[in-house]
Amino acid sequence: MSDTKTKLTQPQVRGSWVQTERKAHEKWASLISRKPRAAALLHLIIANMNSRGALIASQTTLAELSGTSVSTVKRSVKVLVDEQWVQTIRIGSERGGALAYVVNRRVAWADKRKNSQYALFDARVLVSERDNPQGLEGPD
Rank of each mutant, 00 (worst) to 15 (best):
G53S: 12
P139I: 06
E21F: 15
G92N: 08
A38P: 05
D140S: 09
K23I: 11
V125F: 02
R113T: 12
M1K: 04
I56G: 06
T4N: 06
P133T: 03
S51W: 12
A100D: 00
V77T: 15
T6I: 00
V79W: 14
R106E: 11
E94Q: 10
S93E: 00
E26K: 15
T20W: 13
Q134S: 11
R37H: 12
G138Y: 04
G97C: 02
D122F: 09
S58R: 08
K112H: 15
G53K: 14
S76F: 10
N132S: 04
T9Y: 14
Q84T: 11
N115A: 01
T60E: 03
K74R: 15
E129Q: 12
G97R: 08
R90Q: 04
Q87T: 13
A47Q: 08
Q134Y: 14
G138F: 01
S76R: 13
D140Y: 06
T68W: 08
L31E: 07
A119H: 11
T4P: 10
E64P: 01
D82S: 14
I89G: 06
A110D: 09
I89R: 12
K114A: 04
P11A: 13
T72L: 07
G67P: 09
S116E: 04
V70G: 07
L31F: 11
S30L: 13
M1H: 01
K112C: 07
R52Q: 08
D3V: 02
W109N: 10
S66D: 05
V77G: 11
S66K: 09
W28H: 14
W28Q: 07
V107D: 06
P139H: 06
L126T: 01
L55P: 07
I32H: 05
E137R: 13
S58N: 04
T61D: 03
P139Q: 02
A123P: 00
Y101K: 12
P11T: 11
S2G: 04
S51V: 12
Q12D: 00
S128D: 00
S33G: 03
V102L: 08
G67W: 03
T68Q: 05
Q117P: 09
F121L: 09
A38F: 10
S93Y: 07
S69H: 02
E21C: 15
S66C: 05
E64A: 11
G135E: 02
L65D: 00
L41Y: 13
S33I: 07
H25R: 14
F121R: 06
R75V: 03
E64W: 07
S51R: 15
V77W: 14
K5R: 04
W17Q: 07
E21N: 15
M1F: 03
P36W: 01
L136P: 10
K27F: 15
P133C: 05
